[in-house]
Design a protein around this nucleic acid. Structure first.
Lengths: 151, 151
DNA sequence: TCTGATAATGAAAACCATTATCATTTTGTA
DNA sequence: TACAAAATGATAATGGTTTTCATTATCAGA
């Protein structure tokens, strides 16, 4: 990687330090296209940096969430999953497709224009109706994946 | 109430019994327009039926979820919330608007046609692309409510 | 109505992801 | 280099949810 300028900057602005642990965690997040739990990240980091504890993973993820670098998702299966926000990720804007049986999560990137249209209308509507300022939305689709269907 | 035929039927089909506890829990769910946690339901049930324990609440909610009578939501603040599915509820199809500060949840029912259009396209797309059978989706909007903004 | 098989229940303990505590180490800066 | 602030790891605590297990309620058939 060695491309931490963007975060380095962000960390500075928040008075935070860019430490080995934090770099290692970011590196894991950058080099995956999966949806990792804190424990997944812990194990990935652990292979190179056995000294980094699970507590630090959680703390750092919380920090990264607060600075808008990662998003935390709860798919409803106990463990939360984390991924880089659009601004910091190579991934396109996407939603999640979750298999109710095996809990696999797949990204879905089509029909973004249609989605934007709907979301904008809805967000404006809510602004007017309730005075809520909307800044994020999530869309999850639940179903059964082909592998589980085949069983 | 005394209008349990629909569930009574459903319970029968699954070889389940329609007990006092289950009726009491359903009654609470019917007579609210809020998003209740297991504990909320426990407390509501407890006033009339002090003998019913929290374990039964959890077990029953899981059962109701499996039979498609209630939906479980995880808004990401610890406790899961439950509400009747559309088929069994007086509520219209709606989505959730969640205040990130005070965690209030508000229902939002507008722009359903636009939503349907987008969701149908997306669901069909996913069917074709991944072979996933989609049967539910959730849309959550996150923001700051007017009360929290005022503070 | 009784009876036995099965399902449902409550209390308590177990679970397990996440958070808080606190003493120690690391970091950036004077 | 020295010092204050931030970061860390090990451990304990938290808290919502599940399991366990002995007891009780329910239903179908005799």
């Amino acid at each position: 990687m060695r491309d931490c300028h963007k975060w380095g900057q962000k960390f500075q602005n928040y008075g935070l330090r860019l430490t080995i642990s934090r770099e290692a965690i970011l590196e894991v997040l950058i080099n995956t296209d999966k949806h990792l739990s804190a424990e997944d990240i812990f194990m990935a980091v652990h292979s190179n940096n056995p000294a980094i504890g699970l507590t630090t993973i959680y703390r750092t993820l919380e920090l990264l969430k607060q600075t808008g670098i990662v998003t935390k998702f709860e798919f409803g299966h106990g463990k939360a999953k984390y991924e880089l926000t659009e601004e910091y990720s190579k991934k396109k804007h996407h939603h999640h497709l979750i298999c109710k049986k095996c809990r696999k999560v797949v990204d879905y990137t089509d029909f973004i224009m249609e989605e934007k249209e709907y979301i904008n209308k809805a967000a404006t509507g809510m602004q007017n109706k309730f005075g809520f300022d909307i800044d994020t939305h999530i869309i999850h689709f639940y179903g059964i994946c082909p592998e589980c269907k085949a069983e």
